[in-house]
Simulated assay, not measured.
Amino acid sequence: MSESSLTIDKILAPELTLCRVPASSKKRVLEFIAERIHYQDETLNDTDIFNNLVARERLGSTGIGEGIAIPHCRLEGLDRVIGVMMTLEQPVDFDAIDNQPVDLVFALIVPKEATSEHLELLSQLAERFNDSAFCERLRQCEDPSGLFRKMADTHH
């Protein structure tokens, strides 16, 4: 694992890239993430994922400002990193640091014994989302495949 560093395109699957998700609250966004991951891999328990995401939010919101959130957590028994990319139909209150509602969400679920590699992924994500033109392109996506291509394109 260590010889190739993890990048966003390696952890994101088209099935976990979702456009204009109708979520009315932060809780619903986190539930939706957990449900989608379980739907894609039934060995992973959606209640566990949801509870871990919520527990992480209690430590401090993962809303990083400018309408973006990167919810993340560790999961017992997971052997890979899972990414979920969503744009929301309507921005929701996420207790973000700038109090702006969130409409771009990238969730990261990592193995229990998470390493520095996973922190590296978080900083890669934060760096990409720091580019407001890039975020605007994501928000304009009409379909999941377009969103996936934009997110997985390492050259933006």
Rank of each mutant, 00 (worst) to 15 (best):
D48C: 12
E3L: 03
E113K: 08
R128W: 11
M1D: 10
T87R: 02
L121V: 10
A114H: 14
D93W: 08
V110M: 15
S61K: 06
D41I: 00
F134Y: 14
A55C: 09
S132C: 08
A55K: 11
D103Q: 10
D79S: 14
L6S: 02
R128M: 09
A34W: 09
E117D: 13
I37D: 04
P101W: 12
G67E: 01
S24I: 08
H155K: 15
F50S: 02
E57F: 00
F106C: 10
L108E: 03
C73N: 10
M86C: 11
K150A: 13
G83D: 02
L18D: 08
L122N: 15
G83Y: 02
M1T: 10
I109E: 03
H72Q: 10
I82E: 07
L147P: 00
L138D: 01
A96M: 05
N52C: 13
F106T: 06
H155N: 14
N52V: 08
D143L: 09
L44N: 01
D143G: 07
L59N: 14
R20I: 05
E89V: 08
F50W: 05
D153R: 06
E117W: 06
V81W: 11
Q40Y: 07
P22W: 07
E66M: 09
S132Q: 13
F94K: 00
L121I: 09
T115Q: 09
G83L: 06
T87W: 03
M85I: 11
I11P: 06
H155V: 14
T62M: 12
E142P: 04
A152C: 04
G60S: 11
D131H: 07
F134G: 03
L119F: 13
D131E: 05
V84P: 00
V110H: 14
A23T: 11
I82S: 11
G65N: 05
F148N: 03
R20M: 04
S2D: 12
G77I: 15
V102S: 01
R80I: 04
E15T: 10
T115K: 11
G63Y: 00
K27I: 09
R28E: 05
F94S: 03
S132G: 06
I33F: 05
Q100L: 05
L125F: 02
S123R: 13
K150T: 12
K26R: 12
E3P: 01
A114Q: 13
E35I: 02
E35C: 02
Q90T: 12
P22M: 07
C73W: 09
P101K: 12
Q100S: 07
P14T: 10
E3G: 01
L121N: 09
Y39G: 12
L88V: 08
V110W: 14
G63K: 00
C135R: 04
P111R: 14
R28T: 04
H118C: 08
K26P: 01
V110L: 13
R20Y: 06
L6M: 10
N130D: 08
E142C: 03
A107C: 03
S145T: 05
S61Y: 01
P144Y: 11
E3T: 02
A13E: 12
K27R: 11
T62G: 14
E113Y: 08
I8F: 12
E89I: 09
E120R: 15
I68A: 00
L30N: 04
F129G: 00
L75I: 05
E31D: 07
D95E: 15
V84M: 02
C19M: 10
I33C: 02
T115V: 09
